[in-house]
Amino acid sequence: MHLHKYERIWLMFGGASLVVFLAVIGITAFFMGDQPPSGAFCAPVFANADTVDPEKVTETPPFNEPGIKKVGENQYVVTMVAYSFGFQPSNIEIPAGAEVYFQVTSKDVVHGFEIPGTNVNMMITPGYVNTIRYTFDEPGNYLILCNEYCGVGHQFMSTTVEVK
């Protein structure tokens, strides 16, 4: 098959771009630990299963005691329950520079968990525990909000993280 010189050029350009894109994603995923939120993501910190009976959330550890727990040098675990229409615990305080692991589940419907301006953004599905890690380097007030329409009070479903 005869290939025009220009065709060879753009095929090579396309192929090389694909290789670069996949290499960058591969390096960040396997060597830098960038992974999408999931129950298994924070495995070094949590030993929990990534599922929970949605009807028994309030009786199942660790969700029977939602709150902040210090687990290491400047390392915290925030155990959170999302419900219609709020987050428990609300208005969290965290020292600046802390590495925070959020483990969140829902006791009713699907909720969202987003901190605008950061990469923290995950779906909270009843029956599943979703986890994400974030380091709060900058002091200030961070908003946590639900970004999945969950009912008539959805627009009120938010809380804050105070980093100081």
Partner: peptide
């Protein structure tokens, strides 16, 4: 003729490719 006719195609493919790479 072919070489002449593909110049515009090469240019548009490269512009589109550059846009994709830059936005990525």
């Amino acid at each position: 003729e072919q070489q002449m006719a593909l110049k515009g195609t090469l240019a548009s493919v490269m512009i589109l490719g550059a846009l994709i790479v830059i936005s990525w």
